[in-house]
Design a protein around this nucleic acid. Structure first.
Length: 576
RNA sequence: UGGGGUAUAGUGUAACGGUAGCACGACUGACUCUGAAUCAGUUAGUUGGGGUUCAAAUCCCUGUACCCCAGCCA
């Protein structure tokens, strides 16, 4: 978890790491560091969780401590085993190494119950018969204090009896709760006699029907941390208001008292991180599933072709703070490209094939050329790519009437085919519609390998494949799932789905790829030269190759094209 | 006058009373068998107003803006 950002004395520590470092120095917890990552298994992990994972596992690794993986499974209505499994898989993929086995809050239900009984005996908790609506009314508002429940002064014995019968399932859902007896006049609403247990006749994914009462987050979470000997309990900003309650319970029980610290959750442009909304996208089939490559879920990013290292690097780069911010998606892409550039084998693939005939190349013959696998990594070696009379190049790499600054192929122009030969376009063949269907070119045999012995130069190098040898493939191109930087920026009456980008997925058939990728396993990453980074999709097979575009290469020509288009528009507007 | 938080280039972050720096983005240029990568450069900032100090992003006072809280969710 630390490989991308080894902390050292020179390096800046974020405010949480600073606290940890200070605690170690002053001997708090005997210098012990123990964090935890506590997901609720009610959805898939996303890149926002990655920030928390990198923080919690990272701190443990950097300071010689431990980090627990603990499922906060206190609400049986929303939680499922499928989510537990996916969360474990995603953390492992990211590189998080937890202490021992995965832990479950549900394993502590008995201990929590016993502690609740203890609070009742201390007259600091009571069974309340108010309904949910009544409880809300009694709670007061942000500006007005609440009223005490009429059940607040029940005797200890009666409370003990009722609580036990709640547990046994004698009362219907919603008829009774166990509440902490704190302060109905507190300006912090969380302290106005908060509910500790609710009655839920629900089947839990691990404890089955053992329990009819389930602990609330505020009651449960500190206890879980305490039981596990957590030292630093790190959570997101919205729990700041809950910290006094976290502390109140642990103080009341006089048990090990971890300290809670809050940091700002991650926001990313063009992305939506709410679990509820992600669930909505999945359930309403607006995406193909939790692992849709357009989603910010870890499973989606994995399928898209992201490397774990790039995500870790991203998390280290964005830092940790207490104020809300929205990170530019371009920064994520930068971290992605940085890693993929260093590690991805290069390969040639043509997305929109345009046929070329090398008129002076002998019929029925093939040449074999050496190509470098990764110029950033000499140890990656070389491979052979076949060349023959009929080739495909990218349609975008030819223009019959090229504008200024276009230095790819055009009639009469000479370019290089990467690792192969210089070719010159002599003839443009069109169909009845005037569409270019074929180019007839000549090659210079003296330029084999890509260099001209006479020292002459070309302005462009194109990728290509041999028609006879190329593999067919389906290629899926992705764009942002949302058209707006902030998907929640909508007109009145609309929700975020109004901002879904209808062009976020384009499926290209009939793409052509060099034969070396034939047996590429699932999720294998490549750079398609001059195009971008791609990986084999989970559904790809040697019989039907499918690639996902992870991210494009930076594209200066595309920028120039845009500028030229804008200039033309401006000229036209001036004429009008 | 409910409470709790937070404000540094377009974006994300450093500077812990002593030269406001880094990264991303954008823009130049060099190099190039990927219009990639790499390299060099340009651009642009302390929420407003007072105060303390030789010196303030940092300390004090006072405005402003934004975020969170009224689930028997987490």
């Amino acid at each position: 978890m630390t490989e991308t950002n080894e902390p050292n004395n020179e390096q800046h520590l974020d405010f949480i790491r600073q606290i940890v470092a200070d605690d170690i120095e002053s001997g708090v917890n005997d210098g012990r560091v123990h964090t935890r990552f506590p997901p609720e298994p009610n959805g898939y992990l996303h890149i926002g969780h990655a920030k928390s994972i990198c923080l919690n596992f990272g701190i443990a690794a950097e300071f010689g401590g431990q980090c627990n993986l603990r499922f906060d499974d206190t609400n049986p209505c929303k939680e499922e085993q499928e989510y537990v499994d996916s969360i474990i898989e995603d953390i492992q993929w990211l590189g998080g190494q937890w202490n021992g086995e995965p832990l479950f809050a549900s394993d502590y239900f008995q201990q929590m119950y016993d502690w609740a009984v203890e609070l009742i005996k201390k007259n600091r908790a009571f069974v309340c018969d108010l309904t949910a609506d009544q409880t809300r009314a009694y709670r007061g508002t942000l500006k007005e204090q609440g009223k005490k429940s009429p059940y607040r002064n029940r005797g200890v014995d009666e409370n003990l009896d009722l609580f036990e019968r709640m547990k046994k399932g004698e009362f219907p859902d919603g008829t009774k709760t166990l509440k902490a007896k704190i302060d109905m006049a507190s300006p912090n609403i969380n302290l106005r006699d908060p509910v500790m247990y609710r009655i839920l006749h629900a089947t839990h994914h691990r404890t089955d029907d053992d329990w009819c009462v389930y602990p609330m987050y505020d009651w449960a979470h500190g206890l879980e941390d305490s039981i596990e000997g957590i030292t630093h309990s790190i959570c997101t900003l919205e729990f700041e208001n809950h910290r006094p309650l976290y502390d109140w319970f642990l103080d009341a029980l006089e048990i090990h008292h971890p300290r809670q610290y809050e940091f700002a959750r991650l926001n990313l442009t063009y992305t939506m991180m709410s679990k509820r909304k992600l669930l909505q996208l999945v359930n309403n089939r607006l995406v193909s599933g939790w692992d849709d490559p357009r989603l910010p879920t870890l499973s989606g990013l994995r399928r898209r072709g992201f490397s774990p290292k790039s995500i870790r690097d991203f998390c280290a780069t964005i830092g940790v703070n207490k104020f809300n911010s929205t990170v530019d998606y371009a920064l994520l892409e930068h971290c992605l490209r940085k890693d993929l550039n260093a590690t991805s084998p290069r390969v040639m693939a043509v997305l929109n094939p345009l046929k070329i005939i090398i008129t002076n190349f002998p019929d029925g013959q093939a040449d074999e050329l050496d190509a470098v696998n990764n110029p950033e990594d000499e140890s990656a070696g070389t491979r052979i790519v076949p060349f023959s009379k009929m080739l495909y190049i990218e349609r975008d790499d030819f223009m019959e009437d090229p504008p200024r600054k276009f230095f790819r192929l055009a009639p009469g122009r000479e370019v290089r085919l990467r690792y192969a030969y210089f070719i010159t376009c002599n003839e443009v063949v069109k169909d009845d519609n005037g569409e270019v269907v074929e180019l007839r070119c000549t090659y210079d045999p003296a330029t084999r390998g890509g260099d001209a012995p006479d020292g002459r130069r070309v302005k462009a190098t194109l990728h290509w494949v041999s028609a006879e040898h190329a593999l067919d493939a389906e290629i899926r191109l992705y764009d942002h799932l949302f058209t707006k930087e902030n998907p929640d920026d909508v007109e009145d009456g609309q929700d975020f789905t109004a901002n879904i980008n209808q062009d976020s997925l384009k499926v290209l058939g009939g793409c052509k790829i060099e034969p070396s990728v034939k047996n590429a396993e699932s999720l294998r990453r490549f750079q398609f030269e001059r195009l971008g980074y791609f990986c084999t999709d989970a559904d790809s097979t040697p019989e039907k190759l499918i690639f996902n575009k992870t991210v494009g290469l930076r594209d200066t020509w595309a920028k120039i094209q845009k500028q030229q288009q804008n200039q033309q528009k401006q000229k036209q507007q001036k004429k009008k």
